[in-house]
Design a protein around this nucleic acid. Structure first.
Lengths: 217, 217
DNA sequence: TGTACATCAGTGAACGCGCGTTCACTGATGTAC
DNA sequence: TGTACATCAGTGAACGCGCGTTCACTGATGTAC
């Protein structure tokens, strides 16, 4: 409804592309991906219904652009959380997991766009590259823990997958699933910590332990 | 396209309600929830476009009915997997987790319907009751392990949430997510085992261990 | 066993709207000389 | 610095389709007596 003006009022609208992305993100955050339509976006940006097509070839392209952006931001969030964490390998790993869940909860628009079912059909180079980078952070942190003897000596791939699954699952259950930001009295703020902390605690309950030597095969 | 006839050709169509549910499920399994539309369902059942409304008040109601059914089937699958498992608490817990993921992969139609975002808005008593029952199986199996000293001594709620998150996340990543039934050379058949097994192995790596006593708070 | 009546599961045509997308256009912006 | 021209981001009206939903109807099914 309100016409947005960015710094430079040049080029007619300022930065329509950015405005479309931003308002689109807000719509998805509030009502889900299926609620996003270009006409409404155009209207909210104070622009005619055809205008968005000068910036995105179609609706799908806008969704993909947002998904790419989301993966990049997730990676940034994870990287800086890790950098800010205590130097111990377990603390660093836990910080990554927490950042993942925190991102999903606070940026649920991006999260939905990044993992929506239809994305794969059009899975674009940019999306794949970004998501790979995010996942690689997790893998490296796990390898680091294993080298230090701070994680169970199972296949690293299995451990990486399990950790990713756990934080991803928590995010799904909270963002769109039956939990909706609530689970048995855990405070909203502590939610992102619960799952990663439980895992790292389970992996090395007391303190650094040697890699367990499996006795039977 | 093909007109279905059930045993009794009575009542015009036989059992249109059931046929609509079944073909709807197949559509969702193949192309996702958004691909399901009542006109196509009616056509596939060889019936006019208005016919479904004698069995479901609207599209939403059909989706909810399928979701309820899905939760009931998930619970059955989990219960019988647990019953068929070895008597050891850890084996029983692992069987539950495996059943959850197996269900998601083999019945991805139900899985999508059960956890789709829009379900919550209309979250019905039937759905809630069924999903609670399924989750309670998991909780009890965890409590059993903890009593036997076979799981870390963290809060049971945190452990339950983490396990649920892990199997749910694996399911999401495989069914609609970036993994799509593939992860680093794990065979498709072994996928449902990877995450639950990794967790139970991590929880009690060698054999039954006493509940760890946390030294620092 | 037959008849009358209520009920119920279908038909098929139509309504109507949301929304992606197109298109001929206009006026603003940048650039070459 | 001014002018001519290409380009580009908008307008706004319209197309068109998919699809949920409705409605007056018809014929089949079950039930009461």
């Amino acid at each position: 409804v309100v016409t947005r003006r960015k710094k430079k009022d040049s080029w007619h609208h300022g930065d329509l592309r950015r405005v479309l992305l931003d308002t689109g993100l807000r719509v998805v955050e509030k009502d889900g991906v299926s609620a996003l339509n270009l006409r409404e976006l155009a209207q909210k940006a104070g622009v005619s219904s055809g205008a968005p097509y000068h910036h995105f070839t179609n609706r799908q392209a806008l969704l993909v652009a947002l998904a790419e952006e989301g993966f990049a931001r997730l990676r940034d969030a994870m990287a800086s959380a890790q950098a800010a964490a205590a130097p111990a390998p377990v603390a660093r790993l836990e910080a990554l997991g927490r950042a993942y869940v925190e991102f999903a909860l606070s940026q649920s628009g991006y999260f939905r766009l990044m993992f929506r079912a239809d994305l794969d059909k059009t899975r674009h180079a940019g999306v794949n590259a970004e998501s790979d980078k995010a996942f690689r952070l997790l893998e490296e942190a796990i390898a680091e823990c294993q080298r230090a003897g701070l994680a169970p000596g199972v296949q690293p791939e299995a451990l990486a997958l399990t950790l990713w699954s756990a934080v991803h699952g928590a995010a799904c259950l909270w963002v769109d699933g039956p939990l909706r930001y609530e689970f048995r009295g855990f405070a909203r703020d502590s939610l992102p910590t619960v799952v990663p902390r439980t895992l790292t605690t389970a992996f090395s309950p007391d303190e650094p332990v040697a890699m367990p030597k499996r006795r039977r095969r």
